[in-house]
Write a protein that binds this DNA or RNA. Structure first.
Lengths: 206, 206
DNA sequence: TTATTTTTGTACCAATCGGTACGAAACACA
DNA sequence: TGTGTTTCGTACCGATTGGTACAAAAATAA
């Protein structure tokens, strides 16, 4: 019988096996980029945190930009699914509030760097990082799209009045999300953000 | 008679006169830091934009961190006074709206880098930049204080109902300001931000 | 003129940057 | 025991980083 304690079968490939877990290494890289940003994170910072050396990094993840993209992908996959979930709430208004609450939890989580990687990863940076900046802006607009679609659905469903503007509303709540990230990065507490959320919900159409 | 075309008297100090205008040079440095952030701006970027060489930079402005602080000071002095002015509006509500409008103008100004230096100058960065980060967070809280004081005044003056929370309101509008900066930095237009502002004003206590 | 003072440009510093060449090491297979 | 294959660690690459030493240049004062 197979080893039941190990989830994956192991038809070991030829060659020397790698001595680190790429998944853990990627998570370590995520933390570094998260708290230092693309420019502020050096390869030495990264390899030190990941517990590997540069050739291993390059062989496994590519150059710094590729690594960053993989990190962003990991971030999106692990830190944002709560949004889709929240937006499944039968009430769009509740859904949005739950998105804001979840984001507030995330950007002030005591075990993670404060703020959102998609915001502080590369807001302003130098050199050939335009692609990075565009990537992050795209990912950010992803969550805005989520909100907009939910709001459009709410309008056709009657929860939002016909004169409401789902486009503007999704942009507004996205802006509040970005703002909360900046505030958290600057030291705002979860409680601080709660009062922001409560007020932001006042903008909901009467 | 004195030279009437020159504003300042000129009791030239001894030594070789400097060949550049420190004011213009500082403005050039401001632009570089504004669009590349602290980490992304190299001394080569700075000296190239300022039109001077490194020894002149060091003699006049100190090292990179000192230069950045002077740049931030310049930024605050030139880009934020519109806030005090706007908050002198007899209506606090109008004042806040004018602050948001002015900020939207500023962060999308076609001749300047998009976004706010106090936000994107050093949100996440590496090395010994903790002081820089704290400085910027402090400057940001400056505008929040402005809003809070105005709102407190509005409450004692009766424009805001007693049950309103000036603390929370100022934090909310500050958060919207930071969010608009991020959005502008990511490509949002002035028009986009206007719809955000209109919705943000809905949060004003009934 | 000479002396003094300050700025300028060049040339340079050690350290670090992102990125790689290369041989030893560790596995499967024969 | 090889042999093939892949990763590992070290040592290194040229370029760039932030920061300076130094002497020529440009001004005033004597």
């Amino acid at each position: 019988m197979g080893k039941v304690t190990k989830a994956k079968k192991k038809p070991l490939p030829p060659g020397r096996p790698r001595a680190f877990d790429p998944d853990r290494a990627l998570n370590a890289a995520l933390r570094v980029f998260w708290e230092k940003g693309y420019d502020g994170a050096s390869l030495s910072d990264l390899t030190a945190a990941m517990g590997i050396n540069k050739p291993s990094l390059y062989a496994t993840f590519g150059d710094k930009q590729e690594l960053f993209r993989k990190v962003v992908e990991r971030y999106v996959q692990t830190q944002t699914p709560f949004m889709q979930e929240a937006l499944e709430d039968p009430s769009a208004r509740n859904g949005i509030r739950r998105v804001l609450n979840g984001a507030a939890d995330s950007v002030t989580h005591p075990l993670n760097p404060h703020g959102c990687l998609l915001v502080q990863g590369a807001l302003a940076c130098g050199g050939e990082t335009d692609g990075i900046k565009r990537d992050l802006a795209e990912k950010r607009s992803g969550s805005e799209n989520l909100l907009r679609n939910r709001l459009l659905r709410a309008q056709t469903g009657g929860e939002l009045p016909p004169e409401a503007d789902p486009e503007a509303l999704s942009r507004f709540y996205s802006t509040v999300l970005r703002g909360m990230s900046v505030e958290a990065s600057g030291g705002a507490t979860r409680k601080d953000l709660q009062s922001v959320i409560d007020l932001a919900m006042n903008a909901w159409p009467a």
